[in-house]
Design a protein around this nucleic acid. Structure first.
Lengths: 90, 90
DNA sequence: CTTATATTTAGATGTTTGGCTAAATATGCA
DNA sequence: TGCATATTTAGCCAAACATCTAAATATAAG
């Protein structure tokens, strides 16, 4: 679980996840939303993959990334538990 | 807000916050729950203070730390918004 | 005034992180 | 086969991080 929280601590990665929440996107599509280089983004994808927050689906030369919604939900849920916000957070 | 997420990314700091959720505690009391040295914990307190997640109340030689519940709640709430988990998380 | 206690500050060290450029890999297409 | 495209890997660097020990600070208590 720590990998997930570490992954969430970077603003670029949070934005990637937010984009993927809308729909799955290719690495190139995602890149258009950022100013950092593609290798840098590729590293962020790797961090998110290691945290099991996304997975990439390779088709030809293109990799489409998908968000693992339940992993994200469970991570937030765990935080809410940890901090005893028992009604949940609206 | 980024400071808050960075602060939450360390397990020691998450545990400190969880302890303070139960009740306010002095630096020394908190230290009993960890194996790291007091200077190390003091650094963690500073990070949490900079994120406005806690504040310390000095009385004599003792500093009692208090959790800022609403700051924590708002941070989680923002995450939930960002990821469009519109029902909230239970 | 001296000593004991609680906590922080200073300074050092090793590791991790986020960024870059250049090169490698894999695939599709003429 | 040869070229263009999409993406990652390799290698580097500077800044940030988590930790430690030793020293400083502040206060209380005899």
């Amino acid at each position: 679980m720590n990998l997930v929280y570490k992954a969430l601590s970077d603003p670029t990665r949070r934005k990637i996840l937010a984009l993927l929440r809308g729909r799955a996107m290719t690495a190139g599509e995602i890149a258009k939303h950022f100013e950092v280089t593609k290798p840098t983004l590729s590293r962020h994808f790797a961090v998110l993959r290691e945290a099991d927050l996304i997975h990439g689906d390779k088709r030809g030369t293109v990799i489409t990334y998908h968000l693992h919604v339940t992993v994200l939900e469970e991570a937030l849920s765990s935080l809410i538990d940890l901090f005893q916000m028992k009604g949940g957070v609206k």
